Amino acid sequence: MNASTDRPHTPVPDIYFDPYFELDAVKILPGEYYVTGRDMILVTVLGSCVCACIRDPLTGISGMCHFMLPEQHRDDSLINRAMCYGNHAMETLINQLIENGAQREQLQAKVFGACNAIASPGGHKMGEHNSQFVVSYLEKERITVLARDLLDVYPRKVYFFTRTGLVRVKKLKKLNNTTILDREADYYNRLMEADMSDDVELFS
């Protein structure tokens, strides 16, 4: 599969060359997803948000989505921000994987994020809601979860290697977490520069 068949969410995430890993990479921001059959890296940074890395190991078709809130309710007027909601983001990612050649019964997932750094305005931990949602959703859809790193109090930087399915996760312990919920999207570009050279967990 070549780059022309990749299915990114609008706006199109930028492809860049990662000199550390010597591979093309794509940064996935909140409300975005990316599906590809190429050998590349899908990168994101998570606070209370969740990302799902889903892959068909036989075809190599892989994708990642990044969502902020578990579900969109019927009375929610933010229709144009539907990809920020887990139920829509997960459904869209799975459909695009299949459309690009993945077999549904072969899909495998790894899920990350949902830190409980701060509480939502309603007093509930948004990370807990996101964590419960993504685990329940994948169980309901009968998609095997090979690895998970959810909750805790630290934001995470996630590197998903599409050729092998390997995921590298670095917990960002030196950041000020007080802005994660209300300004998460605004500082993602700064978080993307976090060093991956140490304290990395591997999810193979």
Rank of each mutant, 00 (worst) to 15 (best):
G31Q: 01
V45D: 01
V135T: 13
K27V: 09
V200N: 09
T36K: 07
F17K: 13
D152Q: 08
G60N: 05
P11N: 07
Q132F: 04
C65R: 02
E193K: 13
V158N: 02
C65W: 12
Y85M: 03
V145M: 14
L93V: 05
A117S: 15
G31K: 03
N80D: 14
S197K: 13
C65E: 07
Y159W: 15
C51Q: 02
S48C: 09
E184M: 03
I143R: 12
R104F: 14
D6H: 07
V43D: 07
I41A: 04
Y85S: 02
I15P: 08
F21V: 10
H9K: 09
A82I: 05
E139L: 12
I118N: 08
R156I: 01
G122E: 06
H88W: 10
A185L: 09
I28G: 00
R183L: 10
Y187H: 14
P30S: 05
D152M: 02
A102R: 04
V167F: 04
Y85D: 03
F161V: 03
K140H: 15
T59Q: 02
G127H: 04
P30C: 04
L138G: 09
L166I: 11
E32P: 02
P155V: 03
V43W: 06
A102T: 05
M126C: 06
D152F: 03
G63W: 09
G60L: 05
M64C: 05
Y159A: 04
I15F: 13
I180W: 09
E99V: 06
M68N: 04
D18Y: 11
E184F: 11
Q108P: 07
E141M: 15
H124A: 12
A82V: 02
A89R: 05
K157C: 01
D152S: 10
C49K: 01
D14R: 14
Q132W: 03
Q108L: 04
Y154K: 01
N87K: 11
D14C: 09
I79S: 01
E184W: 06
A119H: 14
I118P: 00
P8E: 08
V43L: 14
